[in-house]
């Protein structure tokens, strides 16, 4: 049940019961879930990297994949941000604090945070993309001295649609990471931060970063990638330093069921994190 062990060992579909420690509304339709494996050793051994995902199982409803939203630098619990969009999440939203859910994983190839040490980082998220990238952000906050300049650009449709708004505003105040929050439209008239698309914030970073030494990390709705990548390329960020995490339909998480294939790659094994360089020629990507 750990990613660090040999792959041979994640050979079964056996799940672990995990207790729901907390639930909180993030937006109208998105909730924060905090879980802990009931088995103490399992809980201790649950090692993961930002960008990896876990599969939840609800007998009678099915299985679904969710990105880890917590950081491995903070032990003893795992966190998720989940939007109610289908039958599985509908059932999941009926659960309460103290209930148990079965999980298996973690799966996928996440971000190699160690490899990014000493680099400038531009982290761009939109909508639900904030969920996996929150893991990256918290990781960096905990080990800030290992990284050079870090910028975080987060976009949402409107102030009430911004996930982890509280966390991110606090992050902005802490100034450990240079945080820029943007909403497409400010319907409240009270939004103190940027109004407009996140893409508009990118050109300003040009003077602040050392392009060759910069890595960009993107996650957001399919439409966002194209525009964000265009802007990042204008800043001369190397193609192999644009990291993106993709969403695909998945059933097994082990490269067997076939659903997550993009080109010759299985998103669940070689992804969900890909570099733009690797996938630039895969046309059905986004």
């Amino acid at each position: 049940m750990t990613a660090s062990k040999d792959k041979e060992e994640i050979s079964t579909y056996k799940t672990q019961p995990a207790e729901i420690l907390a639930i909180r509304d993030l937006t109208d339709d998105t909730r924060y879930f905090k879980l802990r494996c009931k088995d103490i050793t399992m809980n201790k051994d649950f090692q993961y990297r930002p960008g990896q995902f876990v599969i939840f199982s609800l007998p009678g409803v099915g299985e679904a994949t969710f990105s880890l939203s917590s950081t491995p630098t903070r032990r003893d619990f795992i966190e998720f941000g989940i939007r109610k969009v289908g039958s599985f999440t509908e059932a999941l939203f009926k659960l309460k604090k103290g209930d148990t859910i079965d999980i298996r994983g973690p799966y996928g190839d996440g971000f190699e945070m160690e490899d990014l040490r000493g680099r400038d980082l531009i982290i761009v998220s939109g909508g639900l993309g904030a969920v996996p990238l929150r893991s990256v952000l918290l990781y960096i906050e905990d080990r800030r001295e290992e990284y050079n300049k870090v910028f975080f650009l987060n976009g949402a449709r409107s102030p009430k649609d911004m996930l982890y708004k509280r966390d991110f505003i606090a992050m902005n105040q802490r100034q450990i990471i240079d945080t820029h929050l943007a909403v497409d439209e400010d319907d409240t008239g009270e939004w103190p931060y940027n109004v407009g698309f996140v893409t508009q914030l990118i050109p300003k970073l040009g003077e602040l970063i050392d392009s060759e030494n910069t890595t960009a990390i993107i996650c957001g709705p399919p439409i966002m990638y194209k525009f964000v990548i265009q802007e990042l390329l204008k800043l001369n960020i190397p193609k192999d330093q644009i990291l993106m995490t993709l969403e695909r339909r998945m059933k097994c998480g082990q490269g067997h069921c076939g659903h997550c294939a993009v080109g010759g790659r299985y998103t669940c094994l070689e992804g969900p994190v890909f570099t733009y360089y690797d996938v630039q020629h895969i046309k059905e990507l986004i």
Partner: peptide, 19 residues
């Protein structure tokens, strides 16, 4: 061709089922 789909089924008594 080996791609597979996974689905849960609940029996009529609503107390047991299979994946």
């Amino acid at each position: 061709c080996n791609c597979f789909h996974v689905d849960d089924k609940i029996m009529m008594n609503a107390e047991e089922g299979i994946r």
